[in-house]
Write a protein that binds this DNA or RNA. Sequence first.
DNA 1: ACGCTTCTGGTCACTCTGACCAAGAGGTGG
DNA 2: CCACCTCTTGGTCAGAGTGACCAGAAGCGT
Lengths: 240, 240
Amino acid sequence: MGAEQLVLAVSTVVVALRPHPETGRLTLWLPLVRRIREPYRGMWALPGEPLRPEDDLATSARRTLERTTGLAPHYLEQLYAFGAVDRSPAGSGEDRVVSVVYWAIIRADEDARAIDGENVEWFVADEAPHLAFDHDTVLAYALARLRAKMGYSAIAHAFLTDEFTLAELRQVYEAVLQRPLDPANFRRQVLASKRVVPTGRHLSGTAHRPPALYRLAVPIPSADPARVVAAGHPEQEELT
Amino acid sequence: MGAEQLVLAVSTVVVALRPHPETGRLTLWLPLVRRIREPYRGMWALPGEPLRPEDDLATSARRTLERTTGLAPHYLEQLYAFGAVDRSPAGSGEDRVVSVVYWAIIRADEDARAIDGENVEWFVADEAPHLAFDHDTVLAYALARLRAKMGYSAIAHAFLTDEFTLAELRQVYEAVLQRPLDPANFRRQVLASKRVVPTGRHLSGTAHRPPALYRLAVPIPSADPARVVAAGHPEQEELT
DNA sequence: ACGCTTCTGGTCACTCTGACCAAGAGGTGG
DNA sequence: CCACCTCTTGGTCAGAGTGACCAGAAGCGT
């Protein structure tokens, strides 16, 4: 009693796009880990680990991702630090835990190589079970922020490979925003944004007219404050 | 050696609008604290304190604000968790410190009541000295984010009292964005946004035509994830 | 009373957006 | 092998929003 320690942990919301088991439409999926000890034993939780003194926060998030999916992230961003005193069951003598939550996006091509770790299972993001700790809130916040950020940043590309068709890009938006977009208008806006350049090549073997392939004009900007500041151009676009 | 501990601290970037000492125009100011011990002894740093196990993160930020300015914040938002391993001088045997940084806005009327704490001094935000730790980066990021957020949220009102004129609101924007705005266009856009309603009253005693007074239609939305999620409408507007 | 300054309402050209139409260009199936 | 289907791609059009700018309204100071 009274000997509670303050522990810092790093959790990661990992998202990937896969077809919905029923509708078949692309949806957000994420891996959860079943807890094998108290508190919340048996419940699902976001993957994470206590921060090691020799690790950066992002390093810890990367290791968690490796451990649960076998993958290295192409996009990793800090989401929020959750530190309410009552995050663990009150009065249980458990340590006080502050969690820094990260957010990782898995590209389609890598997703295929994903290997589930111990006690790991993937869920459709919007149909996830009730989670341990305050992870329901964390997840809801992560999804809300992802959807918001689709509107003004280039993160959609974090789901795609180097070369992609505009239809693929549009499907990412449709999946995350959960609403259909007009193909012609979408094309017009994307091209007007200059974020994308045609490679000149076309995708063959499709069922219909072969779509042109595009490439990202500039790499996806990092949301890391150090880089944002160094970049010198605090475009509102890129500031979370 | 090797006995380094992991310490969690909360720092706060406190901003207020005051006239620039030379130009007289409104600018961002912030309070800094002079360090009285190693590391970085004698340098200026953001106010903060180690997190107490019985405190929420925001509670800690609030106390820091109280201690350095004597004020209670009307607007407080979490900015980012800075956790690079080398934030403190490397190899010095110092504890590893992870800082969760908050962001507080002081209203004009309260600013008048501000009382400087021990070793506290206010600086023009863009003319701050070189700071201890990685606080230069933290500050730059905070300012960049504040300026970005002015564009799509209602935080400008966090600088103002309940009743205000459109000119006052415009001055806040001009001060933060560091560029003049057309009064007529500004008025049109603010009124079109429906965020503001006229009180019917007018401000008298001004040098010229008495401006109408307005009031915020809806309170400034909190950026706290718990409330954002509970609110149920993840408007992109309000998500950080 | 006059001039000055700010407040406030309005115009205008331009851009952006969403809804929609239609031709292009490949497979596919009879 | 040809008509057809579906997706791609280019275009139009009305409406909303934006920035630049003009001008009258309404106070104060001299």
